[in-house]
């Protein structure tokens, strides 16, 4: 995210693809709808199942009950407080992790010496399950926000670091030679060849990193938080409120999906040139 500001990919060009025919447009909406079929069907089934009295729905609450819980939390203003706490932690951890991963990944991708110096250590640290850091972070940074943000940042760091370094290492030598032939200076080579070449892999790394950020915020909030969606989970467990747990899970899912989609949306204009299989929607 930090790098995308000055990319030379700002082409003004008319979209050459004509408007899709009506049937294609229908398909465009039908495809996501297909994905909704299973979860919506299951939810409806469970709702009916409980309504018809085949189950009391105490351990697995029906959708209306979950929805009611969400509304209740929302009305009291508690929901937005919890969401804000969690989102803030993820944002801070993600920002730090991305910054560190990008800088160190870029440096060790670009300079062989730095890679030989740095990479073995990073790889060794990566082998440690990140949750194992929790006790140490609490000792070092205290039980409050800092240790939580640090844990999330650690989770985000590794995929970003690996993604950036790998992307730089795998930039096609043949393309770099084009830059050499036109006698680009070092900075120009980075700006005009390396950055655009690594961008697709970078976006993937950011998305993976964000996914891990959401994973680690739960772990972070399990270690003693007084607010946040992870707190709602623990609270729901301790007080035996399954509806609250499921509600928090659903909100996690929505937030995770939305933020991932935001990254995709923000970077799509920079990646229009890509000719990947997935862009055409894969096989049929």
């Amino acid at each position: 995210m930090t790098m995308s500001a000055e990319l030379p990919v700002t082409l003004e060009r008319a979209d050459t693809t004509a408007a899709p025919p009506p049937s294609a447009r229908l398909l465009r909406y039908a495809r996501p709808a297909l994905g909704l079929l299973l979860p919506v069907g299951l939810a409806l089934f469970w709702e009916l199942w409980v309504a018809l009295g085949y189950s009391n729905g105490r351990l697995v609450p029906p959708p209306t009950k979950i929805f009611a819980t969400v509304m209740e939390l929302a009305k009291s203003g508690e929901l937005s407080r919890h969401i804000a706490a969690t989102v803030t932690r993820v944002a801070a951890g993600f920002g730090l992790g991305v910054a560190a991963g990008t800088i160190l990944g870029a440096v060790s991708g670009y300079w062989g010496v730095v890679r030989q110096l740095l990479d073995p250590t990073v790889q060794a640290l990566r082998a440690i399950p990140s949750i194992a850091w929790v006790p140490l972070f609490i000792l070092w940074l205290g039980i409050f926000e800092t240790s939580k943000v640090a844990l999330i940042a650690v989770g985000v760091f590794f995929p970003v670091y690996l993604g950036v370094m790998g992307a730089i290492l795998s930039v096609d030598r043949k393309i770099v030679e084009v830059g050499r032939i036109f006698r680009l200076s070092g900075p120009a080579m980075i700006r005009r060849i390396l950055l655009p070449a690594v961008l697709p892999a970078y976006v993937v790394a950011l998305r993976v990193g964000l996914g891990l950020g959401w994973m680690f915020v739960v772990a972070a909030e399990f270690m003693g938080a007084s607010e946040g969606l992870g707190y709602l989970l623990i609270d729901g467990q301790q007080l035996g409120k399954p509806a609250q747990i499921v509600a928090a899970i659903v909100i996690f899912a929505i937030l995770g999906k939305t933020t991932d989609w935001l990254i995709e949306l923000a970077t799509a204009p920079l990646l229009r040139w890509q000719d990947a299989f997935g862009r055409q929607g894969g096989a049929a």
């Binding site: 030379p8 082409l11 043949k174 393309i175 030679e177 655009p196 961008l199 040139w273 890509q274 000719d275």
Partner: peptide, 11 residues
């Protein structure tokens, strides 16, 4: 070169 080596991100 034998391959065009165009930069795929440029028009």
């Amino acid at each position: 070169f034998q391959e065009p080596r165009l930069l795929p991100w440029l028009s």
